[in-house]
Simulated scan of single mutants.
Amino acid sequence: MLRFSNFLFPESRDPDRDAEVIADCIAEAKLCDELGVEVLWLAEHHFDGNCAYVDPVTFAAAVLTATKRIKVGFAVAQVSLHHPTRLAEQMALLDNIGKGRVIVGLGRGTAYNVYEYQGYGIPWEEAGSLYEEAEGIMLKAWTSPEGFTHEGKHWTLKVPRLRPTSFTRPHPYVIRAASSEEGALHLAKRGLPFLMNVQSNETTAKRMALYKAAMEQAGFDAAHVARCLDESWVWRNVVVAPTDEEARRIGVPAFEAMQEHRRRLREKIYAEQGIIMKKEEVPPARTDPGHALISGSPETVAEKMAEIEATGVGGVICSFRLGPMPADVAAGSIRLFMEEVAPRFAAGAVSAAAE
């Protein structure tokens, strides 16, 4: 059974409209809760308007109090920008506010936007090692009732027992991002599920097969492997409308404007700073609407989702509001998806259709 979620990743190009877009986000969260979306994923990006609410930790508290049943996940918290003890405290508090509805998605931080590190006074070259050390500290903080000490490359800590204790035991649910095949296989050897970026179905199928084989080779049993596959997610851009033509009319310009805006922003920063953290070689599966955008009628989108289901991944992170797309258009797309696409993948739907 394929599972569905929404990536709430709102663009705000005009600083004077930030408050309006943030209010739209709360409304979208409430709509998703009402319609039965399983998870609302939050992003983290700073200073550029690519993510209007900026701070997903603070915003998650607002979403959790505004909703009743939807889970709130991080896709991802940029761990290298946070002090790990503080982040562990904040996640434990959110876990209590939501009574276990938090998914702590962890990643090192952006590989492209150097100003995010500069704004926090953090060397971007150390983002990877900061992340690795911070993850271990957070897990210790959640699971050490007597407190602990830590001496590492970046932090020397003497941490008493963390308060509040998390609602979920032994700690909030944690998932890691893996944007590369190497990253996915690293998590497979640890027997952990993962979050994937936008990619082709061919890439997803290949990655899932390698991931499954690596877990089996590492000695994990069939039940554990199946659980990790079910708990892994892949990101797709999605627009649903009554007809294929209308969905393309709505979706393609919004998607292209979003990609062009991000490309120009990165080129501007490269030109100003002369710093390229990572050469951007983005495949068409992420930038070409013919590959990177699922748009169409409910029937067409359901067919595309069935193709994703066939790759073996357990869930799809659907990004519905793309670039400058108006909030009401995104809301209509979400409603159509949840009312006419998602039910086709519910437990019992396949067997019922076969009878």
Rank of each mutant, 00 (worst) to 15 (best):
Glu34Asp: 12
Glu34Tyr: 04
Leu35Ala: 13
Leu35Pro: 14
Gly36Met: 03
Val39Trp: 02
Trp41Gly: 01
Leu42Ile: 03
His45Asp: 10
His45Trp: 10
Phe47Lys: 07
Phe47Ala: 10
Asn50Phe: 15
Cys51Asp: 04
Ala52Met: 01
Ala52Pro: 00
Tyr53Gly: 00
Val54Ser: 13
Val54Leu: 09
Val54Cys: 10
Val57Ala: 10
Val57Trp: 06
Val57Tyr: 07
Thr58Pro: 00
Thr58Asn: 04
Ala60Val: 05
Ala62Val: 13
Leu64Ile: 08
Leu64His: 12
Thr65Val: 09
Thr67Glu: 01
Thr67Phe: 03
Lys68Val: 02
Arg69Ala: 15
Ile70His: 07
Lys71Val: 09
Lys71Glu: 13
Val72Pro: 01
Gly73Tyr: 00
Val76Met: 12
Val76Ile: 11
His83Ser: 04
His83Phe: 04
His83Trp: 01
Pro84Ala: 13
Thr85Ile: 15
Leu87Cys: 06
Leu87Tyr: 08
Glu89Ile: 08
Glu89Trp: 03
Glu89Phe: 06
Gln90Phe: 11
Leu93Glu: 08
Leu93Tyr: 12
Leu94Tyr: 06
Asp95Leu: 01
Ile97Leu: 11
Gly98Ile: 00
Lys99Pro: 06
Arg101Trp: 14
Val102Thr: 04
Val102Phe: 03
Val102Gln: 00
Gly105Thr: 12
Leu106Ile: 08
Arg108Pro: 02
Gly109Glu: 05
Gly109Tyr: 07
Thr110Met: 09
Tyr112Ala: 08
Val114Tyr: 09
Tyr115Glu: 12
Tyr117Trp: 12
Gln118Asn: 15
Gln118Lys: 14
Gln118Glu: 15
Gly121Leu: 10
Pro123Met: 00
Trp124Thr: 03
Trp124Ser: 05
Glu126Lys: 14
Ala127Ser: 15
Ala127Asp: 09
Gly128Met: 02
Ser129Ala: 02
Ser129Pro: 02
Ser129Phe: 00
Ser129Asn: 03
Glu133Cys: 04
Glu133Pro: 01
Ala134Asp: 07
Ala134Ile: 07
Glu135Ser: 12
Gly136Asn: 01
Gly136Lys: 02
Leu139Asn: 08
Leu139Ser: 06
Lys140Tyr: 06
Ala141Gly: 05
Thr143Arg: 09
Ser144Asp: 09
Pro145Tyr: 13
Gly147Asp: 07
